[in-house]
Each structure stands twice: as C-alpha cells, then as structure tokens.
Amino acid sequence: MNGNHAALAAFAHNLADLARAETLHRFEAGVGADDKGGANGFDPVTDADREAERAMRAAIEAAYPEHGIAGEEFPERPSSGPFVWSLDPVDGTRSFTCGLPNWVTLIALLEDGRPTIGLIDVPCLGERYWGAGGDGAFVRSGQQVRLRASDRTSLAEARLSTTDPYLFEDAERGAFERVRAGVRTTRYGHDGYAYARLAAGTLDLVIESQLKPYDYNALIPVVRAAGGVIGDWTGGDDFSAGRVIAAATPALFEQAVAVMRDAG
C-alpha cells in the first residue's frame, strides 16, 4: 500500500475501535431490539447498531469530509471523490440479541466502487481480521497472524457455512442442499464471522443469498488477502444480486459455482 492507503487502513481500525466502544457494553448489558422489517419479516435493529454507526459516521465526516458513507442504518452520504465507506455496525444482530458472541462489525473502503480495504471486527471474542492491497492479518488472543485460507480443493473435504439455510428460496434451497450433502461438515448462524474464519483457514466454503452491499463489501478484501476466492453464483464478480460464494481455493470455488448456478 502507498502512504495514503496505509493511513486509510489505519483509520479503518480507528473506526472499529469506535464501534466496539458503542456495541460491546450494550451487548454485555443486554438490549432490546426494534423490528425494522415490517411486512417483510422480523429484521432487528438495536441502539448498538445505531450508535455505533453514528460514531463511525461522525469520525469519517470530521477526518474525510469528501468521502461518501453508505451504512445500514442511515441514509447514504454522497462522495465528492472516489472514496466511499461501507458500514455495517452489527452484522448478526439476531445473534447479538440472543446473547451469542459471534456478531461482527464490518467496515470497508470502496475506491471507484471497488472494495480495497476490508475489516471484520469481532468485539466479544477480541478478534479482528483485515485485508488491504492483497495483505491481510488477524489478531486473536493478542497475537497477530497472517491470513491464510486452507488448501482444500474438493467438496468432500470442505467445511461449509451459511447464516441460515431457510433464507434460500425455491431453487436456491435445492442447489444449496446438493452442496451441503457433498461436504464434510456444515455450520450455521455465523453471518460475517464465517468469512473471517474462512480467511483464517478453519472454514473452507461459505454460500449466501440476499446479502446487501454493506454485508459483503468488507468481506471481499479480507477473503482475497487470505488467498481465497469470493464471487457470485455464476463465477463472476457481480454481487448486486446478493448471491455470494467464498471459497478457500479456486478449485473449490468452481465446484460450488457448478452447483449453485443451477439455481437460476
């Protein structure tokens, strides 16, 4: 990274610290959730979501007033240049409200529409994962370790995750089930944390549907910095439909795509 990008990556860590200061104590105290989903089904939001995003937005506006901001909880702030910050203050709000520790904060910096810096913060577990310019690392138990996806190349060996299999619709569900039936083991309910663990080498494959940009922007640089592959269900790079496959190796990615593209 050049000096400017290194400064921006450091600033992303500052944003994660600000968010953690708003979310962690509320999680420990226990907070209620409002339903912002309405007729579309239960979609929880808490004070932790809102206050963490407010804190990050205020910091961005003060340090980089020309940068845009696209967050989950508040209207988009347009950019007057190439940079836009993508913010998901609590990814995994259902886990948060259930007292489960694997919710994360997702922060990404987009340059000309492409995520170049990604950060996944895991406040409850004291972990943080980041990728920028092809470099990536994570901190766990106070130790910094370089990101490295596993070398598994076949579905039969793969450790698979998705947040909730009931989020898949119709043909999607059948395609996912065909992948699930062929892998070694499957874990559910981890939201953005699953991609962090793929980048750290303990999961091999993540398949999801219905993701929004603030759900996936931060994941892209992290997975790629680990040597993994992340793309859409056709094997391309168009995430606009919210369909995402992340895999530890190109061979594993191609096998998953061969099944999931049949979902239409």
Rank of each mutant, 00 (worst) to 15 (best):
P89K: 01
R261W: 05
E66Y: 04
P213I: 03
S141F: 10
A247Y: 06
A194N: 04
P221I: 01
P213K: 05
I120H: 00
I117H: 01
D164P: 10
A33K: 12
A58V: 10
P75C: 08
F11Q: 04
D17I: 11
T186P: 02
G192P: 07
E72P: 04
E111V: 15
V104R: 00
A7R: 12
D34W: 11
R152C: 11
T105K: 09
Y188V: 06
A6P: 02
L155C: 08
F96D: 02
W85K: 01
A218Q: 03
A246K: 01
L8S: 05
R57H: 11
V244T: 07
A16I: 05
F42H: 13
S209P: 05
P65H: 01
F138E: 07
E177G: 08
N40F: 11
D191G: 09
N40P: 06
S150G: 15
M1G: 12
R187T: 15
N102I: 04
G37A: 10
C124L: 08
P82W: 07
A251L: 09
E127Q: 12
A10S: 12
H25E: 14
R152M: 14
L87V: 14
A218L: 04
D91Y: 01
A7V: 04
D215P: 06
V183Y: 12
H25W: 13
G38E: 12
R114Y: 12
A62V: 08
L110G: 09
D151Q: 11
V206T: 02
R77T: 13
T185M: 13
A225E: 00
S141D: 15
I117F: 08
R187M: 14
F96H: 09
D204T: 02
E28C: 10
R94A: 12
E53G: 02
R77W: 02
L119H: 13
G99C: 05
D17M: 07
A7Y: 05
G227Q: 01
T105G: 08
R178C: 09
H13G: 10
E76V: 15
T162Q: 11
A181N: 13
A218W: 01
A48H: 06
W85Q: 02
